[in-house]
Simulated scan of single mutants.
Amino acid sequence: MKVSDILRVKGGTLYTVSPDERLEIAVQTMAQYDIGSLAVMEHGELVGMLTFRELIETLADNGGQLGNRTVRSVMDDHPMTCTPETELEQVRPMMLEKHTRYMPVMESRMLMGVISFYDVAKAVVDSQNFENKMLKAYIRDWPEEEAAQDPQPR
């Protein structure tokens, strides 16, 4: 399974923010849409990611206050990325190793979407459930002639 399969299921909604936006506005956007990250875009290009991790660190470092900080001052300006053609078997260890919960999906220099660790886990579980269902159907529909040729267990 590829990252493009996750993007196809997820749909095309992308939540972005400008690096010069106040953190307070970014937090309101994240709360409004119940999302854990915003892609930070400047002049049509991805320049970073803002996730709840950066927000919590900022709050912890500043006595629970965001102040007048901008997104640029706290964003991850070198987020790990993948492409739509990246296999999920490659993405899972990358996300686990770096404790990454959100990963931008890039094609050339264009942002195609953002996948979350939840999206990856759900895709894996759905795939395993489908495979399990197919195996059970195959066993249930086992041809009788093959079954008759197999010796009975003693």
Rank of each mutant, 00 (worst) to 15 (best):
L55Q: 05
E21I: 06
A123G: 01
V47E: 01
M106V: 02
C82H: 08
R22N: 08
I25G: 01
M103Q: 13
R101V: 01
L46F: 03
V71D: 05
G36R: 03
T83N: 14
C82E: 05
K122Y: 03
V40F: 05
L23E: 05
I25H: 06
L66E: 14
D76T: 14
L66G: 01
T16N: 04
E87W: 09
Y118H: 11
V125W: 00
V40K: 03
S108T: 10
V74Y: 04
V17Y: 02
V120N: 10
V91L: 11
K98T: 15
S73P: 07
T83M: 08
P19M: 09
Q28W: 00
K10A: 02
L55N: 02
G12I: 00
S18G: 10
R72Q: 08
T81L: 06
E97T: 08
L38S: 03
M75W: 03
K10Q: 14
M103K: 11
R22K: 14
V105C: 11
P19G: 07
V40A: 01
M110I: 08
K98I: 10
G63S: 13
R109T: 15
L88G: 03
R69M: 15
P93I: 10
V71T: 12
G12W: 02
E107N: 11
P79Q: 09
Y15I: 04
G36W: 07
G64P: 05
T100C: 15
V40N: 07
G113A: 00
H43C: 07
L23M: 11
T83V: 01
L66D: 06
Y102D: 02
L50I: 06
V71G: 11
I6T: 13
M106T: 07
H78P: 00
T81A: 05
L38A: 04
Q32I: 02
V9M: 09
I25E: 11
E107P: 07
I6R: 12
A39T: 13
D119M: 05
R92T: 15
S116L: 11
A39F: 12
E97A: 11
E57R: 14
M106E: 13
D77H: 12
F52R: 10
E97R: 09
A60P: 04
D34E: 12
N62C: 04
R101C: 06
V71F: 09
V125P: 04
I115V: 14
M110S: 09
T70F: 08
T70V: 05
Y102H: 15
K98H: 15
I115R: 06
L38G: 00
N62W: 13
T100K: 02
E57I: 06
G36N: 10
M49I: 15
P79D: 11
V105K: 15
G64M: 14
A123V: 04
I35Q: 04
V40W: 02
L88Y: 12
V114H: 10
V71Y: 12
P79H: 07
L66R: 09
T70K: 13
D61K: 15
E57K: 13
T70S: 08
